[in-house]
Design a protein around this nucleic acid. Structure first.
Length: 622
DNA sequence: GTAGGGTTAG
């Protein structure tokens, strides 16, 4: 009998902490982890007597678990008065097969409703890691992350580093832990664990870091994303093309194109070549950048891509087609559509959806419908997005009958209308003054298994406000809360706008204070709307005060802000002030748009000036 | 240990 076996025996007795067992005049605290009884003549007797007690020895225990004789295991545990948690500790210490220990862990947790300590959880993880049972370990930690809510990352790390097992295995455990957090959408915990791994010196891998960065990118947490990326480089974690692409796409989605380009330079410097995914992310970033020459730049990247011998794929073309459609250039989108097919690529469902959307938005409904036919005959089944796009198109073109009929088509095709489908319909009705019908659709939603969301209410409130039924709108605003829906910034903006139109800017201002109080951040539209309201009442001082407030919130005056203020000053005949605002915006690099000039021209014309062909003003009255 | 990146609707 060696010291491990002795250790096992003492543990199996499961004495409560603080009591000591007397074995041949040796006092041995049973809760000491590294307990070992010295073996010398006379000791064997005591050991034998321990073995013959009704307790559960390790071989019997592992055999019962191995054969899944759980009822007997339960009976034996009871008969021997063993503490099931201590038995688990014992299995770990005795070097039992970790898979059987894992089985016992789960059984005692589920059957005996035992909640095992972090120390045991990570002791088992270490044991699985030592036996290289990595897939078992992965699912074990995955499960742990899904069910454990109360544990802090700090206490988890404490257990991992303190429950024995090597440092290398610690790294693998932490890596899988971060991976599990990411996989289960617990991104913040994953991020915290990532940071703490650095403090402890545990080495992570792309297996956990890539999914973590992917989540951070999806959440729009670009600051944290950049932190992880830079830390990975600093900690010398080997980065691959997916890591770079994740960072690049995250930055592109956050409209940080310059930083995205820097990362492209980083990857080239690391000897990693950009691939089709890299280019797709960059092209999409430019398409959605909102800049005037965005499609020109997107096209330039496409050329660079081809020059680098990277072949554009379906997704590349889809991005470009959608980009041109959003740029209100369906003709260019069509050219890309044809080019795509010339290159031997088949248009996908996304291709058709984007093009149909482009056609609908440019009022070419019949072309959109025939493209949908073409799509169906090429063997592609429309999805709910296709139908939503068409319903939107019909609604915008006053084709309500067709829009409503689409609901039946959707169901006939075995598809399910979603909240967006209904919102499009409600919005279409509200925009054309069919407010009663909008409410009928709203009321029918629940029976179709779709619950209205904040957007549904925002459309209805807009509709009511437009008809001047502000009291009903406010009632609906209160009703939202009863349906556990929180009004958002848009809801407040609608109501603020409506109050402003009624020349109740002070009341609108109080609504702004209320939204701040409940933790909602006003956006540009909020401030611009309120400024517009004060301007309408001729209260330019109040309008300028709102601008100050906006700047305090970290929002800078943009083109919309300047247009509101310039209009306000023009209407009051304060052309000099309007002019200095125009100068200010130019100084700040805000480019005046058509609206800016229209506002000024309108005022000038009213004052008896006529514009010449170049837009210069000449006074004809004096 | 074997994971992870790019496109469409209000």
């Amino acid at each position: 009998m060696n010291s491990i076996a002795l250790n096992s025996l003492a543990r199996l007795m499961c004495f409560p902490p603080g009591k000591f067992v007397r074995v041949n005049s040796f006092l041995c605290p049973p809760s000491t982890r590294k307990l070992s009884l010295p073996i010398f003549p006379g000791n064997e007797h005591a050991i034998r007597s321990l073995c013959s007690s009704p307790s559960l020895d390790i071989p019997t225990l592992t055999e019962l678990v191995s054969n899944q004789h759980y009822s007997e295991l339960k009976a034996r545990l009871r008969a021997s008065r063993s503490n099931p948690a201590a038995v688990l500790r014992q299995m770990l210490d005795s070097g039992s097969d970790p898979e059987l220990t894992l089985r016992y862990f789960k059984w005692s947790r589920d059957e005996l409703k035992l909640s095992h300590t972090l120390e045991l959880t990570f002791g088992l993880s270490h044991s699985l890691a030592s036996a290289k049972k990595y897939s078992k370990m992965r699912s074990f930690l995955d499960e742990f992350v899904r069910v454990s809510d109360g544990n802090t990352v700090s206490s988890i790390f404490h257990s991992i580093s303190n429950c024995g097992g090597g440092f290398c295995n610690g790294s693998i455990i932490v890596d899988m832990l971060v991976w599990a957090y990411a996989k289960n959408g617990k991104t913040q915990l994953g991020f915290e664990a990532f940071k703490r791994a650095g403090d402890y010196g545990y080495k992570l891998s792309i297996i956990s870091c890539n999914p973590l960065m992917s989540n951070l990118a999806k959440d729009g947490a670009v600051g944290d994303l950049e932190f992880v990326y830079k830390e990975m480089i600093r900690r010398r974690i080997k980065i691959n093309v997916v890591s770079f692409n994740t960072v690049i796409s995250g930055l592109c989605q956050a409209r940080k194109l310059n930083k995205a380009c820097d990362v492209v330079d980083d990857m080239k410097a690391c000897g990693v070549s950009p691939n089709v995914v890299t280019y797709n992310a960059l092209i999409d970033g430019h398409c959605k950048s909102g800049g005037l020459s965005r499609m020109y730049k997107a096209d330039a990247i496409l050329k660079e891509m081809v020059d680098s011998k990277i072949c554009p794929n379906e997704i590349t073309y889809n991005i470009l087609i959608d980009g041109y459609c959003k740029d209100e250039n369906v003709a260019a989108a069509n050219k890309v559509f044809e080019e795509m097919q010339r290159q031997g690529l088949k248009p996908t469902l996304v291709t058709y959806n984007s093009l149909i959307n482009g056609l609908c938005n440019s009022g070419e409904i019949s072309k959109a419908v025939s493209l949908q036919d073409q799509m169906s005959s090429s063997g592609l089944k429309p999805n709910i997005i296709t139908y939503n796009v068409l319903i939107h198109g019909f609604g915008k073109n006053d084709m309500f009958k067709e829009a409503r009929e689409m609901l039946d088509v959707i169901e006939k095709e075995g598809l399910v209308p979603n909240v967006i489908t209904f919102n499009i319909l409600v919005d279409a009705c509200c925009n054309s003054g069919k407010i009663e019908e909008a409410f009928l659709i709203h009321a029918s939603m629940a029976s179709k298994g779709v619950l209205p969301d904040v957007s549904t209410y925002n459309s209805l409130i807009t509709g009511l406000c437009r008809e001047g039924k502000l009291d009903k709108a406010e009632k609906l605003f209160e009703e939202m809360k009863d349906n556990s829906l929180k009004p958002n910034v848009v809801t407040y903006n609608i109501l603020i706008g409506s109050l402003c139109k009624k020349r109740e800017s002070r009341k609108a201002r109080r609504l702004l204070d209320r939204m701040v109080k409940i933790g909602l951040s006003p956006n540009h539209v909020t401030f611009d709307t309120l400024m517009d309201g004060y301007c309408l009442e001729g209260n330019l001082r109040a309008a300028l005060k709102v601008r100050e407030l906006m700047q305090k919130e970290g929002l800078r005056a943009n083109i919309a802000t300047f247009n509101v203020l310039i209009k306000g000053f023009c209407k009051q005949g304060k052309m000099e002030d309007a002019n200095s605002l125009l100068n200010e915006m130019l100084q700040r690099g805000v480019v005046p748009n058509r609206t800016t000039y229209d506002i000024i021209r309108e005022e000038m014309v009213e004052k008896g000036f006529v514009p010449d062909i170049d837009g210069h003003m000449y006074n004809v009255s004096g």
